[in-house]
Simulated assay, not measured.
Amino acid sequence: MRLHFIGVGKMGLPMALHLRAGGADLSVSDNDSTRRALAAEQGLSVASDTALVLQQADGVFSSLPHDAALLKVAEQVATHARSGSFWVDTSTVSLTASAQAAQICTGVGIECVRTTVSGNNKMAEAAQLTVLASGPRTTYDRVLPLLQRWGPNQFYLGDAEQARLMKLVINLMIAQTSAMLGEALTLGRKGGLDWHDMWRVMGASAVASPIVKAKSAQLSERDFSATFTVNQMVKDLDLILGAASENQVPLPQTALTRQLMDAARAHGDADADYAAIIKATERSAGLPT
């Protein structure tokens, strides 16, 4: 199968590598020359003419940063890809932009599967992503063997934008977990509990969710280097609050978490891990960070 992958960033590159490892005849493209060079270093074929490779591909994959990029790629795919081919997009974007992008392509005979993924770049590299898919069921069944290259779990959720919404639901819970940790750890630290002790006890307690366990080794050493940045979480929280507004769902706690992310950004943590919201809460309690 001949495939083309658009957007080989921190998530897209390992996903593309797994497709290639599965035997696909794969080419890639990216607007960033640094990412193109890194893809070439990993042995991927970097396309010099995206329009040409789209014409030749059986399917297109993409991993994109925002709505505008998604809609631009939708126009590229609709203009150059063959009728009867498919487009699998993995981006976290708004429901409105996703529906618009799908309409652009289905109008010219290209089926669109929305396949958001749950997990960070380390999980992508280890093929441990959870894939959330929606779109035409027949096309999902066609691409499922490819999606299985990314991780052990795939969920088909419906024929439209359900995968995009499910990703926002999950990211809402991840963001709120970081806000919860901020309050709990700040209370404990201000009251005299040892930072390392708190992480050890939480990891053995009823609150030891997979996300808490995943963060514990890094954060117990107060290492806030990013797997997913504050800025990236702000983008997702804005998408979450937008979807809530469209559906008339009040999310007061999520709105407060969004403000705390701004507090983290104001103190220079925009490119730190989103868990830097913990430091924002500590500052509000008069603790050094």
Rank of each mutant, 00 (worst) to 15 (best):
E125W: 00
A127V: 07
T130A: 15
T130Y: 03
V131D: 03
V131H: 00
V131R: 06
L132E: 04
T139Q: 00
T139C: 01
D141R: 15
R142W: 02
V143T: 01
V143R: 01
L144I: 04
P145V: 00
L147V: 03
Q148N: 10
R149F: 11
R149S: 15
G151I: 10
P152E: 09
Q154F: 03
Y156Q: 02
Y156K: 06
Y156S: 00
L157W: 12
G158M: 07
D159K: 14
A163R: 08
A163T: 10
R164H: 11
R164A: 15
L165G: 10
L168F: 13
V169C: 13
V169N: 02
V169A: 09
I170Q: 00
M173G: 14
I174D: 03
A175Y: 02
S178D: 06
S178Q: 11
S178H: 13
A179P: 09
M180R: 13
G182A: 03
G182K: 05
T186D: 05
T186Y: 02
G188I: 04
G188Y: 01
G191L: 06
G192S: 11
G192W: 05
L193D: 00
D194L: 07
D194G: 13
D197H: 15
M198C: 01
M198K: 05
R200D: 15
V201A: 03
V201F: 03
M202A: 13
M202K: 01
G203H: 10
A204H: 14
S205P: 11
S209G: 04
I211P: 01
I211D: 13
V212C: 06
K213P: 07
K213C: 14
K215A: 10
R222H: 12
R222D: 09
F224E: 11
F224V: 09
A226V: 08
T227D: 05
T229W: 01
V230A: 05
N231L: 00
N231M: 02
Q232T: 10
Q232A: 08
M233P: 00
V234Q: 11
K235F: 06
K235W: 08
D236M: 04
D236F: 00
L237M: 14
D238F: 08
D238T: 10
D238G: 07
L239Q: 08
I240T: 11
L241V: 12
L241I: 14
A243G: 06
A244M: 07
S245M: 07
E246R: 15
N247W: 10
P250K: 09
P250D: 12
L251K: 07
P252Q: 05
T254V: 13
T257D: 09
T257Y: 03
R258H: 13
Q259D: 11
Q259C: 01
D262A: 13
D262I: 09
R265M: 14
